[in-house]
Design a protein around this nucleic acid. Sequence first.
DNA 1: ACCTGAACACCGTTCAAGT
DNA 2: ACCTGAACACCGTTCAAGT
Lengths: 258, 258
Amino acid sequence: MSPKRAYSGEAAPATPGAVWLRAGDRRPASRAPALTRERIVTATVALLDGQGAQGVQGLSMRKLAESLDVHATSLYWHVSHRDDLLDLALDAVFAEVTLPEPNPDTRDADNSRTAGAWREDVGLFMDELRTALLRHPWSAPLASSRPLLGPQALARSEFVYAALVAGGFEGDDLTAAAAAVSNYVIGTVSAETAWQYENPGEEAAGRRALVAHLRAAGEEHPTLAAHPPSLSTDWEGHFARGRDFLLDGLAHAVAPSG
Amino acid sequence: MSPKRAYSGEAAPATPGAVWLRAGDRRPASRAPALTRERIVTATVALLDGQGAQGVQGLSMRKLAESLDVHATSLYWHVSHRDDLLDLALDAVFAEVTLPEPNPDTRDADNSRTAGAWREDVGLFMDELRTALLRHPWSAPLASSRPLLGPQALARSEFVYAALVAGGFEGDDLTAAAAAVSNYVIGTVSAETAWQYENPGEEAAGRRALVAHLRAAGEEHPTLAAHPPSLSTDWEGHFARGRDFLLDGLAHAVAPSG
DNA sequence: ACCTGAACACCGTTCAAGT
DNA sequence: ACCTGAACACCGTTCAAGT
């Protein structure tokens, strides 16, 4: 109704991932303030973790403020939008991905690259990322829908890029390989967490309904019916198999003869 | 006093003989309902498509109702929650993934499986799915965070399963392969759409800020700085490369010798 | 059977005002 | 510099009531 600037509500900020791009976003503090960005981010992660299957919808500025014993509007001194909070919380999850020093670009006696090194590094990254994302069920869907530009995320990307470069990737192959690795992990964990129930008690009933649904639909989908997709919920095993498929394909790209 | 279109009750009509003058006064005995689930879903997709980079947040029951010339609360006769609408809209996107009859499990003269058939089918599925998801930028993040159980989604799964079974996959390898294929596509498109701007005019400024950000961060991340991730935005090319990496890995699993 | 209207319990965000 | 308080423009969903 109002002609000028329509209510923007929860609309995404104009530039995706804008928190990371704004300079001079944070004012210097004079006296120890009640609120700091760190405290707010910690409380955000805690609130989201406590909201179970609600995901990112479990975060409201008002609930967050209450958990910090402050008014909702105070948060806006430290942060521009709710979305900033989500980006910051996500980067805090990436901080939990702990990685060693990457294996260097070592060579065998015949000057070919050692086969195992880069693959081990990339596989380790994938496993570690999955573990961190699973610890915070709201994080994988978020990671799949926001640019990953926070300092912690960038540091993890650096690790992957270094490992792939050591493995012989370069140019577009490098970019594509790194993207495939991240997207596989994030996509897989996102799918896995999509099955989480609000209430553990509902799981049994939900499972029964799913079996009945697939059986009914299965009459038209014989292959699917013969291999019910998510009834065997060995998520970790399936993750590892798919990870190895992808790593096999990457290995093929840098050593097509072998 | 009285609202604009009140039921007149027993009051005398203003115009004598007005019954005859009013069109549509008598509803047909079995009147077609104003709303159907199909109409609602179509309007939902249209609304979401029109909300640009807002994604799933662009859908409100009130706006949707307005676009259907109905009250928001009427929608609840046809649908239980807002989430139902999202699941229905997502399945409508899967309906746009058009696929041929899958290649059968053909054999070569030496009774080994023809190498190209299943791979062609799976690759086609991946390309088609990407295209459909890109047409509706809100759909990939949604697909990555909801179980894909709609009839259209299941039919597409059937195609992938059939192709993989024809290629020689079974058991956990089959499940893992199918999941990897879907998750790769959905994860990749989700990442791609995460970079979309609300307003095309902001893209240039956002790009400059991103370059500056990566340059500053690049001092600590040399490999990343040397290969700036998303500045070359050949999304399709990178998608195809990653797709082929994965397909190579899958091919290796069913023909480890070759 | 299908739709309306009022009501409830929430939202994110702005802005002037306080300290 | 940092926080409060009131206000604005929205939300999803319920339920009794209408036709």
